[in-house]
Design a protein around this nucleic acid. Structure first.
Lengths: 195, 195
DNA sequence: TTTGATATTGAACGCGCGTTCAGATATCTT
DNA sequence: AAGATATCTGAACGCGCGTTCAATATCAAA
C-alpha cells in the first residue's frame, strides 16, 4: 500500500527532475549547483538528497528516462509495410518525438561526459540500440533493392545527425509547422537514400 | 620591433590555448579549473593571467580563432564552376577542414552558452556567415535549375548538421579514410538536393 | 490526541574555485 | 656588469561548492 504520511514527495520528486533538466540544459551540468536546483523547486539544498543519492545520479536518471521513453515510443509506433514506408515512419517519428523534448535531447548528447564510466556505458548502449533500429531499416531497404546506399553505417549516422539537427533551430510558432518540417526532411532523406 | 626580453611568452601563450582547448573539449568549460590548465602547461595558475584577462576570454579566443580560420580557409578554397561543383567543394571542404580540428569544432557548439551575451553574438554571427555560404550555393543551384529543394533554409541546416556529425564518429585509422567519407557524404548530399 | 513515519530545514564540514599581487627570477639591451 | 623589462611563483582573498545530519515540521493512522 502506498503510504502517504507527511508526504509531498510525489510533488517534489518530479519537480526536482523538471527543474534540474531545465537548468542543466540551459547552463550545463557542471555550471548548475544543487542550491540553484533547490531554489528553483522552492526547498533547501539538503532536501534534494531525499530524492537522489548525488548530483550525477540526478543527471543519469534524466538521461536514462529519456532514452527509455524514446525506445519505448518507437517500439509502439505503428509502421507501414516495406523499408521505404518504415523509413518514413522513422523520420517522422524522430522529429515528432524529439521536438517537444528539446531539453532532454540536448542533455543526452551534451552531458554524457559528466557521467561515470558505468553510467555512460548504460546510456551509450541505449543510444546504440536506437541507431541500430535505423540501420536495420536501411539494410532491409538495401536487401529489397529500394535503397541505393554507398555505406549503410554512414547513412545511419548521417540521417540521425540531420534529423536531430532540427532541434537546434526549430522554434514553435515559427515559419514552418512541425508537420511541414517532417515532410521536408522526409523528402531529403528519401532522395538521399536513393529511393 | 618585437621586444623579447626575458620572454617565454611565445611558447607559453600557445601552450595555454592548446591545453585549454584539450581540457575544455574533454571535460567541459565549467568543469575545468584554471589550476588544471596551468598544471597541464607546467606553470602556476597566476601565470595564466599574463595571457588572458579571465577564464571566459580564454574560451572566447579559442572559438573566435576557430571560426576565423574556418571562414578564411573557405574563402581561399578553390572551387569549380556552377552550383553543383561548388556544393561538392563545400561538402568536401567542411569534412576535410573539420576532421583534424575535432576539439575546436566540439567546443564551438557545446560551449557557446558559457560566453557573455556580447561574445556569444560575435561567434553566432560568424557561424551564421558560414551557414550563409552554403545557403548561397543552394540558392544558386535552385536558380540554375540543377537543385530541387523543398526549402533552401532547411536544406542548409540539414546538410550542415549531417556533415558536422561526421566528427562524432570518425576515428583516424578506422574502417574508412577521410577521403572515402567525403565521397560517400557527397553522394548522399548530391542526391538529397535532387541533382 | 497521541504516535510514528515522512519531509524538510538550516547550519556546518572541508575543499577547490577565479582572481590578485608583491616579490623572486630569468633574459635581453646597453 | 648593470639596468630594465618580461615572466613566473606562491600565498592569499572571499566565495560557493556537494554533501551530511541533528533538529523540526507536517500529516495519516490509531
Amino acid at each position: 500500500m502506498a503510504r502517504k504520511t507527511g508526504s509531498h514527495s510525489e510533488i517534489t520528486g518530479p519537480r526536482i527532475r523538471a527543474e534540474a533538466s531545465r537548468l542543466f540544459a540551459r547552463h550545463g551540468f557542471a555550471a548548475v549547483s544543487m542550491r540553484q536546483i533547490a531554489a528553483a523547486v522552492g526547498v533547501q539544498a539538503g532536501a534534494l538528497y531525499l530524492y537522489t543519492p548525488d548530483k550525477e545520479a540526478l543527471l543519469f536518471d534524466l538521461l536514462k528516462a529519456h532514452m527509455d521513453e524514446l525506445l519505448a515510443a518507437w517500439a509502439e509506433e505503428p509502421r507501414g509495410a516495406g523499408a521505404l514506408a518504415t523509413l518514413e515512419t522513422f523520420v517522422r517519428f524522430h522529429i515528432r518525438h524529439n521536438l517537444p523534448r528539446a531539453e532532454a535531447v540536448f542533455l543526452s548528447y551534451m552531458e554524457l561526459r559528466n557521467l561515470s564510466p558505468e553510467n555512460f556505458a548504460v546510456i551509450e548502449a541505449l543510444r546504440k540500440a536506437y541507431e541500430t533500429e535505423l540501420e536495420t531499416i536501411l539494410r532491409a531497404g538495401q536487401a529489397e533493392g529500394v535503397f541505393a546506399l554507398p555505406d549503410t553505417k554512414l547513412a545511419t549516422m548521417a540521417i540521425i545527425a540531420m534529423l536531430t539537427g532540427v532541434n537546434t533551430w526549430f522554434r514553435e510558432g515559427g515559419r514552418l509547422s512541425r508537420e511541414t518540417v517532417e515532410t521536408i526532411y522526409w523528402d531529403m532523406v528519401r532522395k538521399a537514400v536513393g529511393a
